[in-house]
Write a protein that binds this DNA or RNA. Structure first.
Lengths: 200, 200
DNA sequence: CTTAGTAAATAAACAAGGTTCAGTAAATTA
DNA sequence: TAATTTACTGAACCTTGTTTATTTACTAAG
């Protein structure tokens, strides 16, 4: 009788397998050069099978995009217990970059990869990102209440901090820091976060 | 006779025509949705003809990319006349981001795209970039001599400033600012540059 | 245990795009 | 004018996303 249940389970397992294969391939080669046939090969099924589980290639992308944001948000929350608003902001920034370094594939899909089908879901999928952006703004606001960021507009501050960490993250993920010795990168990032805090 | 000369001239004219058509199309529709057939249509020749002048689609792109790099460096230099080191640094940053906004396709290959041919041009490529990174360091050093950046390591400062402008540029180029009204983006960038200068 | 019906998976086919190449036309040279 | 070289063409090839007709595997009723 557990037939229906088993089928459900198998269906999600299949969707999972496709997703895993796709994530690996996307981060290794980028959206464009990943073909449906490569994904099919990786999971050892035929091409057509994938279309029984996902509408098209971009749907796979968006699913990964969403999961990435889920993980991401959790990481960001893990820093909220810190009392001092400045320390919390620093930790927030460090968690951001650390996420990119730990899960470069996800970071790539979330913030770097060219998004397929331009107009299609433009608004809808930013909602995911908005949560974490709001968290950043909250932390900045609290720092403001503690006397920091004097005379700075909240939107400007949020945009600045985001740009800053995204800059480091994306240079790292897309291997534009190759001319720096690996062991210097982490200290450089820490130093940069400290440098930025001079502006708080 | 000027036959040879005329042929040379016609050859460069043709290459130029292809480049112009391609640039127009690239900036209108983006690299991926520009087809060789569209370029051919635009210059009113057959598809195959293009391959007599350029090895492949990416060569057209790289040619444009190189021109972009030239423009880039010029843009950066155009700011060097500014006396005040802080104003100069601000203008430097603004020129950086403005370049990315004016030539998003160029910026993309220079600093975002995964490098297609592995080692092939990696070094040569970065040498181009190094020029402008050195320019940034020079400007920071001069600001240091004028009493700014007290207690900040030069490498950290350069990395920070680069990350910052690259962050803004790449969010813009890869369309991650879609949730902001277009007319707010420019002021936001200006505000961010001003905010960063508090750390100087 | 059979068998009709359903679900899952496949292979083949299509369209669109980058690229190649055999052939044609035009220009040049002799 | 004839031979040769150069420029160009467009059909054909290959890859990739997607669809569809068909086959295979499974399920459940009789």
């Amino acid at each position: 009788m557990g037939v229906k249940e088993r089928k459900e389970r198998q269906k999600t397992e299949m969707r999972e397998a496709i997703l895993n294969a796709a994530l690996k391939l996307f981060s290794e080669e980028g959206y464009d050069s990943v073909t449906m046939r490569k994904i099919a090969d990786k999971i050892e099924y035929s091409v057509g099978t994938i279309y029984l589980y996902y509408k098209d290639k971009s749907e796979i992308f968006y699913e990964l995009h969403n999961r990435g944001f889920g993980e991401f948000y959790k990481k960001q929350l893990s820093v909220q217990h810190i009392k001092d608003p400045i320390e919390r902001l620093m930790a927030h920034g460090e968690a951001y970059v650390q996420f990119a370094m730990d899960y470069p594939e996800y970071y790539d899909v979330m913030f770097i990869s060219r998004t397929p089908s331009k107009e299609l879901k433009k608004n809808e999928h930013w909602i995911e990102g908005e949560r974490t952006y709001d968290l950043l703004k909250l932390n900045i606001k609290q720092a403001m209440e503690a006397g920091y960021f004097k005379g700075v507009d909240l939107e400007v501050a949020a945009f600045s901090l985001w740009s800053f960490v995204h800059g480091m993250a994306s240079l790292y993920v897309r291997e534009r820091l190759m001319m720096m010795p690996t062991e210097f990168i982490k200290p450089l990032i820490k130093g940069a976060l400290q440098f930025l805090s001079r502006a708080y």
